[in-house]
């Protein structure tokens, strides 16, 4: 029997495609799911700290694009630059 495929979602800050929840669900507010890649937390970084996804992305890139999570490992052959470009285009704007 096939296991149901759970839809994954993209981080609005770094483009990581493996989030379990929609960052900004239709019910309003943020998902509160912390991106294991860049640490962006919808509902906290934006709604409380006033940091937009693009601003977080800029800061994350300036900091060297470190993998955030201690519990969730980065995918094999993970490329932060490739991920950002795939999600947001060249320059990651």
């Amino acid at each position: 029997m096939k296991r149901p495929v759970r839809r994954q979602h993209q981080c609005p800050a770094c483009g990581y495609p493996g989030l379990a929840e929609e960052p900004r669900p239709a019910s309003g507010g943020g998902s509160f799911e912390i991106c294991p890649c860049c640490g962006y937390q919808p509902g906290v970084d934006d709604d409380d700290r006033g940091v937009t996804p693009s601003e977080h992305r800029r800061r994350w890139i300036v900091a060297g694009s470190p993998w955030f999570s201690r519990a969730t490992p980065a995918p094999p052959r993970w490329s932060p630059q490739g991920q950002v470009e795939k999600a947001f285009g060249k320059g990651g704007k």
Binding site: S27, G28, V44, D47, D48
Partner: peptide
Amino acid sequence: TKTYFKPGRRGYFNDQPG
């Protein structure tokens, strides 16, 4: 639990949906 923290912005809870 989804998350647990101390917001820094006044009015944060008031602006939450629901």
